[in-house]
Write a protein that binds this DNA or RNA. Sequence first.
DNA 1: TACAAAATTAAACAAGTGTTTAATTTAAAC
DNA 2: GTTTAAATTAAACACTTGTTTAATTTTGTA
Lengths: 209, 209
Amino acid sequence: MSHIELNEKKIQILKVAEKLFSDKGFEGTSIRNIAKEAKINIAMVSYYFGSKERLLESLIIYRTSDLKLQLENLLQEDLEPIDKVNKLIELYINKINCNGGIFRIMHFELTSKKREKTLNHFTELKKGNLKSLESIIHEGQEKGVFRKDVIIPLITPTILGTFFHFHMNKIFFEKILNLNTEALYNDYIKTHLTKHIQQTIKALLVYEN
Amino acid sequence: MSHIELNEKKIQILKVAEKLFSDKGFEGTSIRNIAKEAKINIAMVSYYFGSKERLLESLIIYRTSDLKLQLENLLQEDLEPIDKVNKLIELYINKINCNGGIFRIMHFELTSKKREKTLNHFTELKKGNLKSLESIIHEGQEKGVFRKDVIIPLITPTILGTFFHFHMNKIFFEKILNLNTEALYNDYIKTHLTKHIQQTIKALLVYEN
DNA sequence: TACAAAATTAAACAAGTGTTTAATTTAAAC
DNA sequence: GTTTAAATTAAACACTTGTTTAATTTTGTA
């Protein structure tokens, strides 16, 4: 099921759908919107993907398939635990930033109790990610550099949540931080925001009350 | 404009709308859904609020009007800066948790460039909140208990982002943390999640590299 | 060239959307 | 009790939705 042949046309449709879903939400985007933007006939979406719902499903699988691999590679690098954590944060942010809207969609559209099948794929991904994080933290704890009373499953919400909330309030932060161009905004994420998250997680992991 | 007379019927509609918007999103909820649930005629929404858009606007104003006041009261309490921060975190979480879906809606529906008027009210609220937070942190910095190189506008994303991300992935966390009942889930937020956020922010504010 | 499979199309489908209308009922004021 | 305003209703409005159909064009293969 997670193997779907993706020809060029399909990928083109997926990318347009990603952009529109991200801009206007899943419900807010019509198949006619997608067809117009992708310059295809409205019947092609059903023809290729079966339905709008399964288009979303395909999109999510298409965009998340390599994240797991990258995380596992990170685990095997020869780095200090804190550097692994920092790299993991960078990896997340980079991944989300590069893949435009899909992660936004996943967080906003995949909470409903419908879309269960799509949600299952997402749950497996999150479980794997959590396992990777756990192994890094445990390593640090055994080395005596990380605290032992930290709740590991709550670390991801802090990393991703901080990023998403910033992204979510893009217009607000552009205004108060004077990020007048897209380049300035992206640069701020890559430098200040990333550093803030790394600093936060480090403090949480090593700070003793 | 921010003063709207709210009779009982209006409030009843607002509460139903909040629930449905929160469950299925703004676009995903139809006026007929709302009318059916609230046991009113579909024309009543337009009659009372003018449009679906302005129903959302009224809902947001209705739910956020007292937050500003509560924050300002907190500022004037006689507490140590770190205790004020902790109380602020508690206030946020409590506020969001009690007011069910509205904050979720605000974060998911208010990013689009449409809905500008509704968005403006929200922006003003956020600016005020940031000012309150700034004054607390500055107080702590002057007393020498907080670091001076922290980026204050990024603290709110960490507080709220962590909470929202947890809430967003409710189903996932219920599963991996064995929060089988609604009561257990809410209790986890009130205790562990709140503590995690407080611990995180404290570490960020006082930890020296 | 001829055939078959795949791709693409315009049109239609039934269902659902937010909003408005005009008629009717309810409530309040005199 | 009559008058006036507010509340409520069913029906219709024009429009959009996701999906399907059946016809046509394009493509690849023998």
